[in-house]
């Protein structure tokens, strides 16, 4: 059952005729080549498919594209051109937060979602904020350190 759906992707209005039940994750990857959005589990457990939907962090594997008419979707593809991204990327580099990288775009977005709300998070805030993002490589502490460093470097300017 195809339907025309309109939403804003990374600041641009997009239209597509598709099954409204398709996962936003598939639409982003297949129809818009947004391959920075990853599929780790397909069941809302890993956070690899994270995107911002109207500014809120969501797992795009759990969102039906039919439900986002008129909404704003921002992905890592767009976010990487912001000043906030550059601060987080550098902090992740300095702290050794990246290994295989499959979880990293999701972690970066989760870090930003936290810092925007709470520019001076403590250790517990950080762990809570990324608890929906699984990482099998790092043991998390070096990601936590990366976010602490980003908080310091960003100095509230999120």
């Amino acid at each position: 059952m195809s339907q025309t759906i309109q939403f804003n992707l990374n600041g641009k209005a997009v239209f597509l005729k598709t099954d409204p039940m398709r996962r936003l994750l598939d639409v982003l990857r297949d129809d818009f080549s947004e391959t920075g959005v990853k599929e780790g589990c397909g069941e809302g457990e890993c956070g690899a498919c994270s995107v911002f939907l109207n500014g809120k962090l969501v797992n795009s594997c759990l969102v039906a594209v039919g439900s986002i008419t008129g909404m704003n979707v921002e992905t890592i593809v767009h976010f990487q051109h912001t000043q906030a991204y550059r601060i987080i990327e550098q902090a992740f580099s300095d702290a050794g937060s990246v290994q295989c990288g499959f979880c990293t775009p999701g972690m970066v977005l989760a870090a930003y979602a936290l810092l925007k709300e709470n520019p001076d998070p403590d250790e517990t805030d950080i762990r809570e904020a990324i608890s929906g993002n699984l990482c099998r490589c790092t043991g998390y502490n070096m990601i936590v350190d990366g976010i602490k460093l980003a908080a310091k470097k960003g100095d509230g300017k999120w």
Partner: peptide
């Protein structure tokens, strides 16, 4: 700094 860090963090790495 890990040389593969930036392309992975930005989602540009191709899996």
């Amino acid at each position: 700094d890990r040389l593969d860090g930036p392309e992975k963090a930005s989602g540009r790495a191709i899996y």
